[in-house]
Design a protein around this nucleic acid. Structure first.
Lengths: 176, 176
DNA sequence: GTTTGCATGTAAACGGTTACATGATTGG
DNA sequence: CCAATCATGTAACCGTTTACATGCAAAC
């Protein structure tokens, strides 16, 4: 899903500025499925405005750039639904960690253990973060997304902790 | 991980042509973590050759373009290890499916069920594919990658099958 | 006194995909 | 007869990231 569609989706849940959209991406509990930088959000918002899928109202502020609050228009809402009715692109999971593990036999045992421990810590942290964001007033779709995320992180952590020991006695090896 | 590094990694396991690398990506059991098109593989291989990280030997063929078989050089091997010793970029998982589910309340129940069933079928297929590729003679890192993949797919499928019913009685809704 | 938060934006660079060009062979 | 497999490559395009520009206020 491109940034354009993601912005449209977020705005369907309520008005927001570009800045707020970024925040929602990062710690609204959506960070596991999507992410984007300002450099892509602001242009996306401008394009959506040009196309009439969202509207802007400017709230002047002193000593700061004006807040530009975006709202979805009826045709924006229709466009989002239209996108979700068509065939979706496939999920893509890119894992530099797994890629590195594929070559664990070329790396010093120390490094492999650091890789594993780092990944375990990160996953645990993400899981904790996710649990914090979970509330009772979620829509079914949101509930679904959160619980699926939790399931996957839990299964991953479980697996990693079970298999971590297998890499404990690896032959130390020279790097480079 | 960029295509360049992935090619380097694959070649570390044995010589191959660009065409074969693509095949390995697709159905060597790595398709869950990485993927790339010819348009990125061939230029990557040329760049690696320029930089002296791989070498080429051309095998002339009749009625077909010459096979260009690539091998890693010692400095290529060192470069791969060097990359894996440095801090790795974070995993990124982009799921248009989960994104769509986030808006299930805006979609006709029919569509939501189709989305779920489609995703279940796809995951089941991927899992089956993964199991087929699993062999006894894998390196520990490969074994790890495969088993982790299996774990995640299994947990996902399990979750989906358990929660599918929740979307069965959704209010039908007009789209567009 | 430095970092973080608020707030918007642009330009260059990057990495990648898609589509195209070419063409024989084999299998269904 | 058509699709797939083998085999390499280029060019246009696309979406995104990174770095830059600007600047005050509040918190640490």
């Amino acid at each position: 899903m491109d940034v354009r569609t993601i912005c449209l989706g977020i705005l369907t849940r309520g008005d927001a500025t570009g800045y707020e959209i970024k925040k929602l991406f990062e710690d609204g509990g959506y960070q596991h499925f999507v992410e984007a930088s300002f450099g892509s959000i602001y242009p996306a918002l401008n394009r959506l405005t040009e196309e009439g899928l969202v509207s802007v109202r400017e709230e002047p502020q002193e000593k700061r750039p004006d807040r530009k609050v975006y709202s979805v228009t009826p045709s924006g809402r229709a466009a989002l639904i239209g996108t979700l009715m068509k065939a979706l692109p496939e999920d893509r999971h890119r894992s530099p960690f797994v890629f590195a593990m594929l070559f664990s036999d070329l790396l010093p045992g120390e490094r492999v253990r650091a890789l594993l421990d780092g990944y375990i810590a990160l996953s645990a942290q993400k899981l904790a973060q996710l649990k914090l964001k979970s509330t009772d007033d979620m829509r079914p779709g949101e509930r679904f997304a959160f619980d699926l995320g939790e399931t996957i992180y839990t299964a991953t952590l479980d697996f990693l902790e079970k298999h971590r020991a297998e890499f404990d006695r690896q032959t130390p090896q020279a790097a480079e």
